[in-house]
């Protein structure tokens, strides 16, 4: 009650903070997703590359045994992303059409205007909504199975664990939502307005389209690579990948133990 009274005298600063945090979490998540895409696409360079990326992210360089990492680090990283994801979703949902009437008005507005920036906002609403569910499933699995990341383990998850339909939808939703979101952030805060905001916005829009195409194409190739490995590896589900550089040499003791 006192707070409500004080807001009559001085307007609450909370809406400013909410707007800022929505943008900030969106920025971190958007950039994270680009990095994520580049990292998982290492499979296109071969199993060994992806193995190296996965092990490096588990900080295996801190261990004497190259096959040993610290997957708990992945759990913490996912926990952090999950937290940002939930905060961002909570803040962004404030902007969703909140009734059938609002939704209907917005749809008819889109139909009338055929205005690109208005339409891609709706794309963000739809893809955001999809990610509430599908993103949560993915994040939870990665958080609870941080050690199951590798050329074979990930491919098995695609095919044998039937995650590929979810990943395909997530790929399209994330890349669309992320690139549109980052473009909108730049416009919203005027980061690249410069001396000529009109022409700079056109350039930003071009860049947005280029990046969206790049990441979706890269994503689809990556998706295909994991599915292909997953199908080939279906009979040996659960077997972990060991790089040939390690198997051809004398095996370290830890590796032998690990395999047995």
């Amino acid at each position: 009650m006192e707070q409500l009274l004080s807001e009559q005298v001085k307007k609450s600063r909370t809406p400013a903070r909410l707007d800022f945090y929505q943008s900030a979490t969106g920025l971190i998540l958007g950039l994270f997703m680009w990095a994520h895409m580049l990292l998982v696409s290492s499979i296109l360079l071969g199993n060994e590359s992806m193995y190296w990326v996965a092990k490096s992210l588990e900080a295996s360089f801190l261990s004497k045994d190259p096959t040993h990492g610290y997957p708990i680090l992945v759990t913490f990283a996912v926990l952090g992303v999950f937290f940002l994801f939930i905060v961002h979703a909570g803040l962004a949902v404030r902007k969703f059409p909140s009734s059938w009437k609002q939704h209907r008005v917005f749809r008819s507005h889109m139909k009338m205007m055929k205005h690109k920036d208005t339409n891609i906002w709706y794309t963000q609403v739809v893809t955001g909504f999809i990610m509430f569910f599908f993103g949560s499933v993915h994040l939870y699995i990665m958080m609870t199975h941080p050690d199951k990341i590798g050329p074979y383990a990930s491919s098995d998850r695609f095919v044998s664990d039937w995650m590929w339909p979810l990943y395909l939808i997530l790929l399209l939703a994330v890349e669309a939502h992320g690139t549109i979101g980052l473009y909108r952030l730049a416009v919203k805060w005027g980061w690249f307005d410069g001396k000529n905001p009109v022409s700079n916005r056109k350039k930003l829009k071009f860049l947005k389209n280029l990046l969206a195409i790049f990441f979706i194409v890269l994503g689809l190739f990556t998706f295909a690579a994991y599915v292909k490995i997953g199908i080939e590896h279906r009979d040996k589900q659960g077997e972990r990948y060991i790089p040939s550089s390690l198997t051809s040499q004398a095996k370290p003791e830890a590796l032998i133990n690990y395999q047995s």
Binding site: L18, R94, D117, T118
Partner: peptide
């Protein structure tokens, strides 16, 4: 300074 004001703008750029 609220969602009916500047923080309500979703940068749809229809105005622009």
């Amino acid at each position: 300074g609220d969602d009916d004001g500047i923080f309500g703008c979703m940068s749809l750029m229809g105005c622009e």
